[in-house]
Design a protein around this nucleic acid. Sequence first.
DNA 1: AATATAGTTGACTGGTCAGTCTACAGATGT
DNA 2: ACATCTGTAGACTGACCAGTCAACTATATT
Lengths: 204, 204
Amino acid sequence: MPRVSDMKERLTDAALDLIWHNSYGTTSVDAICERAGAKKGSFYYFFKSKSELTAAALEAEWNKSRANMDALFSPTVPPLERFDRYFDYVHDRLAELQKACGSILGCPLLTIGSEVGTQDQAVRATVDRIWDRKIQYFESAIRDAHAQGLIVAPDPEAKARALFACYHGTLAQARIQNDVELIRDFKQVARDVLGVKHSAALSA
Amino acid sequence: MPRVSDMKERLTDAALDLIWHNSYGTTSVDAICERAGAKKGSFYYFFKSKSELTAAALEAEWNKSRANMDALFSPTVPPLERFDRYFDYVHDRLAELQKACGSILGCPLLTIGSEVGTQDQAVRATVDRIWDRKIQYFESAIRDAHAQGLIVAPDPEAKARALFACYHGTLAQARIQNDVELIRDFKQVARDVLGVKHSAALSA
DNA sequence: AATATAGTTGACTGGTCAGTCTACAGATGT
DNA sequence: ACATCTGTAGACTGACCAGTCAACTATATT
């Protein structure tokens, strides 16, 4: 069996990068190829369209992030602290990227999903699927917090969805206004949405 | 003075419509012209670029919506009820549009802002400006609610921004998942974010 | 009716786009 | 050494894109 290649990964990496920084619509296949060091032929050898590549890129990114998400949301961490750790992590990462590119990039899932949602069912379904999987981290943290009496959340799934949506709204606003502080402020908003009891207040 | 024309308005209407339904990137000047019943020359007589038209379209939409926003957020309405009325209004409008086009469209400000935010400063600045003006409705309602002892909000501006971001996150999620129910559920989330005291609970 | 001005027309340009196609390169198993 | 199959190369196509331009039309004022 002939040679192996890392081109597929180079292409998904390049695609996610460019689309995240700019947008799906303004990111051309040519630009993706150039960044990945690929020629057109290679691109269409691995993917049958730009749409399919985008879906693959999102899926690949998700797989890369899983280990880190698992660590942040480890059941060994007190449930409300998991959120703080996650929000801190995202804040720090976006702040770091801002230093490099000048912009707060927000969450690619929302940016891409919102852009192509009404037009590209393949990409939209992928966003949807990953979105739901990520919510599961929130959901089990909420369930644990509820079990420990830190919050009252009889419907952890709905609460998780609501908090996830609020968080992504904040990330989107941060992208639009290019202001990282909005993300920092979210930790307190999250406590409000979760309905954290005063007695459960954590140290900063 | 020669003839008058409603073409400028037809163009901004067509543009906002197409961009909202689809996206900025996939909406061509040709398509906007066709829908507006204009020729290329007319388009570039009124606007010097697609970007400038988009900014004008957002501004025009904002101006059209002001009277309604003023009514929904009238100081004569109890402050927390203003939010309910607003959320109901948006929900109903998006549900109606969904019947016509099959999709939950969310908020054009977020969709457009998130798409072009890192690339088109003119459009982005316009989104930013309108965003801030809309937040003022939230802010004064929050201030009134605080004054009436319905909520505790020592920083109404920050609270308004947070609630606005959460709401837009929910609208974005509704667009991505094409699910209007998420918007209906937001009324309760808003109460959590606002920190509505139990004694201030309203009838549905 | 003359004229100035606001608005309209549509062909045209040069560039970019996603996607195709045929030829080719190189590692591996035999 | 040779066959096989994975991957690479890059020219090419036809559609579409934003934006230009010079000629034209309709109206309001004088």
